[in-house]
Design a protein around this nucleic acid. Structure first.
Length: 123
RNA sequence: CAACUUUAUUGUGCGGUCGCGGGGGUAACACCGUGAGGAAAGUCCGAGCAUCGCAGAGCAGGAUAGCUGUUAACGGCAGCCGAAGGCGACUUCAGGGCAAGUGCAACAGAAAUAUACCGCAUUAUUUAUAGUGUAAGGGUGGAAAGGCGAGGUAAGAGCUCACCGUAGAACAGGUAACUGUUUCUAUCUGUAAACCCUAUCCGAUGCAACACCGAUUGGUUCCGUGGCAAAACCGUCUGCUCGGCGGUCACGGAUUAAGGUGGCUUGAUUUUUCCGGCGACGGAAAAAGUAGAUAGAUGAUCGCACACGACAGAACUCGGCUUACAGAUAAAGUUGCUUU
RNA sequence: GCCUCCUUAGUUCAAUGGAUAGAAUAAACCCCUCCUAAGGGUUAGAUGUGGGUUCGAUUCCCGCAGGGGGUG
């Protein structure tokens, strides 16, 4: 499609997932695990993994939605604060299902913006 | 009022803001309208739809198992019959055939489908053995020659008789399963969720099916042309057999593989009313327009109300079954207690 | 999504419908040794789960639960 209106794009291919798992930096928290790597495209990209361990289809969907919503809120902040664009892969954990988007949002703010936002300001 | 039985319905609701999938709309925005379930689940049955195979023939294999009906079909459902359980409403049942044949029945017991350990009776003799007859009594076992009484007998035995059970046949009633104050007969232990027999049904594979578009290059199959060989072997045609078909190499053409589009939602549709039927269900009329994604769409937040929200998320589509489920509501019925 | 197979000691496997469900190995304790290893002895199982058929199921049948494999 390649339209510029979309703020972020999904990662779909298995190769890219494996690449990120191997070579990305990892951020671990009780709610999720995140693999990040710089990206030479114009947009941020996101992939979400919800394994079978989390539960049934409803819980997996729930985890996916919560992460996506939190990322949607954070994404514009990232764009403002940093010139680079990144690939993210979020792996959901068992506790993700019980959390609300508020908490995830504040967590992401701390971990991701705290790390990648300020780095570039210093440069 | 309490304890139950059965059936049905519902599964937080309303409004605002941001965000997501499909559709309509626009030059492009804007905007409009719409968007998970009773089980969407398990994939256990039955169909539609699609492709393959269709010169067939036989065998194997699988499924079902009271009867009648219902349906597109079913192993589902409805009504009825029989058996078991419950005081009862009612619930549960793979519920054909061991009288077609074969097999199995450990241990115990004398003996497990055919026999004589003790016992009972009799014969022979050396008075304790041997032979013969016998299933009334003994103990074993889940099961011991259908049960019990009388006659009968050397002692006994369905050997005979009465009563009762089981199975089969006849007769009567019922569409049928089946039932019976009837009659006759008897190779009368259990097991077919043991092999098997009987009746009925079944070709195979599944939307990742399948159809169309598709660059270089590679592979597969088919067609055409040319060379070499024509028995056997090998391959293929549904699992097997019979039987049928096909030789191999090179070149050219078609075909196909990442991906895309269709299949993909108007269908054995849903709701209401009337008619037929005990019921499952069928018929007629009117109205509704009802998710179609392709890494896979429903979330966040604010306000109000209460019981503070269970199980759980469509992936080709339907009809069932099974399993999970916080509660709430309604209807019909049973039993017990109290009061009148 | 669809199609298939499996479930027995902690682990890897046995067991024809019939006694108290075996074997190897691991674990614990004891013996042997100056000590360790090896060797010897002893010990401990709801046959995944709920029903059914049967006199009696690990075994036969049905429903759940869990796990594995194949398929673009």
């Amino acid at each position: 499609m390649g339209d510029f209106r979309k703020k972020y794009v999904c990662i779909k291919k298995d190769k890219e997932f494996r690449f990120l798992f191997n070579k990305g930096e990892s951020i671990v928290s009780y709610a999720f695990i995140c693999y990040v790597r710089e990206n030479k495209r114009r947009v941020n990209r996101i992939g979400i993994v919800t394994g079978k361990k989390i539960g049934n289809a409803v819980k997996r969907n729930r985890a996916r939605r919560v992460i996506r919503e939190a990322f949607r809120l954070i994404e514009p902040l990232l764009r403002e604060q940093s010139k680079n664009r990144y690939d993210f892969i979020f792996v959901a954990r068992a506790k993700t299902t019980e959390l609300k988007t508020d908490k995830l949002y504040s967590l992401m703010n701390k971990l991701i913006i705290g790390k990648y936002g300020k780095k570039n300001e210093q440069k």
